[in-house]
Design a protein around this nucleic acid. Structure first.
Lengths: 208, 208
DNA sequence: GTCTATATTAAGATAGAC
DNA sequence: GTCTATCTTAATATAGAC
């Protein structure tokens, strides 16, 4: 079946379990038994559980961040003026592209990101902001340009509200799509979900 | 100093630690040493850690839920028509009333609720929905009446987006208010935070 | 009701043979 | 690189004296 090396088998099993159950609730024993590798191999290949968590996220960030940098910069090059809808739309393509990179990649990435923020593991925030702080600043600047009526502080708050909306939705997305299926007979995939989220957060951020 | 009984001392210490660090990261040892009681007393008085968690939340829900039932029903008695802003405003008074009940009660309650949802501990969702399911239905109905242009399913999604916004914001509210203080010299208390949140979620829920 | 002492379980990590 | 076996730590929970 899988002719993957041990390191990849661990990463694949880990990301799935982390996304589903969170980092704290996923033991190395669970990961290695799911991956069908030896318990000791995690520490051999990654050094520690923390470094495994970072490696799992890095695999996505290395694809996502350059892609987002590109959509943001092409936005800037088109001129000074752009709408806030355009800014948020910059996220869609890079996010959905992760689905071609890995099966259910978009969901996985957003769930992992959500878990990372929610379980306030210092090492993860440190890892993300030191490696990918630039793009966060660039995105923030783009939102500011698109909303000149809002103060810097107001944007700070509203972007964090937005982050919460997305992160929580993704962390619970399995449960939510199940409910939508049983209560409303809706089949909601990740693309639907993102397209439902965008008007909500877009209206919220630029609220009067 | 404190002439409180052991049970109350445990509840007070537990709620503070749970709100700050989450349920999983707060050990009974930490709670009992903070409360200056014996380790074994938690299991004596509450039976288990899970039941302690429920007891901590119950103390707030017993105050909050009747109060919310009242504002919602007074909304209904005023006639068929009310705006969505009015519906969300029903939450403000009952939430802020918790501050008179306990010091920093509003923040504490919302943080605990957020932690409860985020750390998908099944027993807590079960506890809340079986004990306080009625008011959740009533609130949902009120939102529907105020937004006749939205389908049942759309309201389901948007209320969950809203829940995510609030829950995440409260779970990180300590960090966020610290940043607001240092970066923008803002002193944001819980009431400010709620009044900042309302326009955001209100615009989001009734977005076109 | 409260305490000490301890049982039990499960986790992350590592030593050392192969 | 991989495996078995084990170390260490820390958690929940309980038994039994007071």
């Amino acid at each position: 079946m899988q002719k993957l090396d041990t390191k990849t088998k661990i990463l694949n099993a880990a990301e799935q379990l982390f996304a589903e159950r969170g980092f704290a609730d996923t033991s190395l024993r669970l990961i290695t038994s799911q991956a069908e590798v030896n318990l000791a191999s995690v520490n051999y290949h990654f050094g520690s559980k923390k470094e495994l968590i970072q490696a799992v996220l890095a695999r996505y960030l290395e694809v996502f961040v350059p892609s987002l940098e590109q959509t943001i910069s092409s936005l800037n090059s088109q001129g000074d003026r752009y709408t806030q809808h355009q800014v948020f739309s910059c996220l869609i393509e890079p996010l959905l592209a992760l689905n071609t990179f890995r099966h259910r990649g978009t969901t996985m990435f957003l769930q992992l990101l959500g878990r990372g923020y929610i379980e306030s593991q210092g090492h993860l925030r440190w890892f993300i902001t030191t490696h990918y702080g630039d793009i966060m600043v660039a995105f923030n600047d783009a939102v500011r340009q698109a909303n000149p009526h809002l103060s810097k502080a107001e944007i700070f708050w509203r972007l964090h509200f937005t982050l919460g909306t997305v992160v929580f939705t993704m962390a619970s997305s399995n449960a939510l799509t199940d409910i939508a299926k049983s209560d409303f007979n809706q089949d909601v995939d990740i693309e639907d979900l993102i397209r439902r989220l965008i008007p909500f957060i877009s209206a919220g951020v630029s609220a009067p």
